[in-house]
Design a protein around this nucleic acid. Structure first.
Length: 500
RNA sequence: CGGGAUGUAGCGCAGUUGGUAGCGCAUCUGGUUUGGGACCAGAGGGUCGCACGUUCGAGUCGUGUCAUCCCGACCA
């Protein structure tokens, strides 16, 4: 009880509330290694659902999976100038390949004799090692395009870490494609951004704003970075996925040329795109309430939990028998069901526990229901309970799951749209940014102004939004104007926010 | 790397002017319970982050050190 109460103090410190939720909902815990995270079975089950769905979507757009080494020779990283610049400060480095036992047997030390001639970097991202490989794969236009994705872990030695949002080591997928033309590569980068947006909205039930990053916010080594930006319940934005048009930068750095139909040589055009376990951070922060996690049915490891209520063995076996065919039917419909008839926890405890873990639907069957031929159905998103006839309950549940999926998206969308506002003056901007949310304002397009705004308000340009009929009108406002700070001309409003 | 805070049982904490370790939750045993986080009785669990110092005596005082968290800078 005391544990649950702590969760209700969300307003005091959102960050702390979030950390509590991650731990209490049994998703993850801190590891012995600084800034790393142990993903526990329940948390990992959610990640597996995310993985499986994204993987299907990648395959449907013609991509294949492959795997590249964890360790990258230091010299690879420095081939692309901007790329090193962006990652050098956060790399873990392998310098030796052997330990030896101390002479007094008190432990082990690094064997100085086993120093590597060239240090190895634990990948912060795999562009360099992949492009070094692509050099050997690509000779002719017939070898293109290459559409490869990798599921992997990467490591970035960040100064400040947060579970799921920014851990030193994280799981992700990174797509790396090579194309014969600029246009094809640009289309690929856009296509994958839309795949991400589709996934975020239709599976995670997290509404996002698609757009292009400003030059300062761009990926190190990219010509353009496209992003999906989500809004958390506390008014801070979260960059949830990115897709990069890399131009010929990496092809030039790793000398990857191909011969076209006319026999002429040219550098190939590249993209890369990735989403990480950070998506789980978004999932948690967008939907959760004071009772814990709220998972969208499409990504919930357990979609339906059934809890029996009984006073003795006979009653339990009667319930077991009544529940068995329901479980079977639900499973045949592709619904994941857990029947929790464990005798070592009381019903009230189970109710609270499955709510904490975000299970979308709970069915309860007791002696009373057995007599009436009913079950109690509770939906996690609204916490509403109703009593429903057992006859045909499987279809009812199927319908309810769809309904919950739609409802939590709608709820998040309404909230997100409520966070969008237009601001015209600098004074107003400084006031509004304190309240959180997305702010649409005019910007003169220079990095200097962007920097000033960031320094004074901690707000960054999240993106220049793409067209989408579903966005609120203020996001779609493309009228020119003047910069709120400098008064210089602005082509259109851009999206500002404070972010994680 | 700067500012602030905290390190005492698995978790959350208390510990008085320095006197040899305590509470709640969790765990284990037995019993009664079971429609919203059960109750009773009993039990187990600690080099008080680490090191050095002051003292007859340190969880408590001093110095150093390490770690974690929060707020910044940095980032998916």
């Amino acid at each position: 009880m005391a544990e649950l109460k702590q969760l209700t103090k969300r307003s005091e410190n959102y960050s702390q509330w979030y950390n509590d939720l991650v731990v209490k909902a049994d998703l993850a815990e801190q590891s012995a290694v600084r800034g790393c995270m142990v993903i526990k079975p329940y948390g990992y089950a959610i990640w597996e659902k995310i993985q499986r769905q994204l993987d299907d979507m990648f395959k449907a757009t013609g991509h294949e999976n492959a795997y590249f080494p964890l360790l990258i020779p230091k010299s690879f990283l420095s081939r692309e100038a901007e790329h090193v610049e962006g990652f050098a400060k956060e790399c873990a480095v392998v310098t030796h390949y052997r330990l030896k036992t101390n002479e007094d047997k008190t432990g082990v030390t690094v064997d100085p004799a086993a120093k590597l001639e060239e240090e190895l970097i634990i990948r912060p991202t795999s562009e360099t090692i992949i492009w070094n490989t692509y050099k050997n794969w690509i000779h002719s236009y017939r070898d293109l395009p290459i559409l490869v994705n990798q599921w992997a872990n990467v490591m970035r030695w960040e100064m400040r870490t947060r579970p799921f949002l920014r851990t030193s080591e994280f799981l992700w997928q990174e797509g790396h494609t090579a194309h014969a033309t600029r246009q094809e590569a640009e289309e690929e980068a856009q296509r994958m951004l839309h795949v991400y947006a589709d996934f975020a909205e239709n599976y995670m039930a997290v509404p996002v704003i698609k757009g292009v990053k400003s030059a300062t916010e761009r990926f190190a080594g990219a010509l353009d970075t496209y992003t999906i930006e989500a809004m958390m319940q506390d008014g801070k934005a979260l960059q949830s996925g990115t897709s990069h048009f890399l131009g010929q930068n990496f092809a030039k750095a790793f000398d990857v040329q191909f011969t076209d139909k006319d026999g002429k040589n040219d550098y190939v055009w590249a993209t890369s795109w990735g989403v990480s376990t950070r998506l789980m951070g978004a999932l948690i922060m967008v939907h959760s309430d004071d009772n814990g996690l709220v998972l969208p049915p499409k990504l919930a490891p357990i979609q339906v939990v059934i809890v029996p209520i009984y006073k003795n063995e006979e009653q339990l076996s009667a319930i077991d028998a009544r529940v068995a065919p329901i479980i079977e039917k639900l499973r045949n419909m592709g619904i994941s069901v857990k029947y929790d008839n464990a005798d070592n926890k009381r019903p009230g405890f189970k109710f609270a526990d499955y709510e904490l873990r975000g299970v979308p639907v709970r069915l309860v069957l007791g002696a009373r229901d057995l007599e009436n031929g009913t079950m109690e159905v509770m939906r996690r998103d609204t916490l509403e309970k109703e009593t429903v006839a057992i006859e045909g309950i499987e279809d009812y549940v199927r319908q309810l799951l769809d309904d919950i999926q739609k409802n939590i998206f709608q709820k998040a969308l309404t909230q997100r749209n409520g966070w969008c506002k237009t601001v015209d003056t600098w004074e107003e901007f400084k006031v509004e940014i304190e309240k959180g949310g997305f702010i649409l304002a005019h910007w003169d397009g220079t990095p200097e102004t962007e920097e000033r705004i960031k320094d004074e308000t901690k707000a960054t340009i999240r993106c220049v939004p793409f067209d989408d009929d579903n966005y609120p009108a203020c996001v779609m406002d493309k009228e020119p104007g003047v910069d709120m700070l400098t008064g210089k001309p602005s082509a259109r409003r851009v999206l500002f926010a404070r972010s994680y």
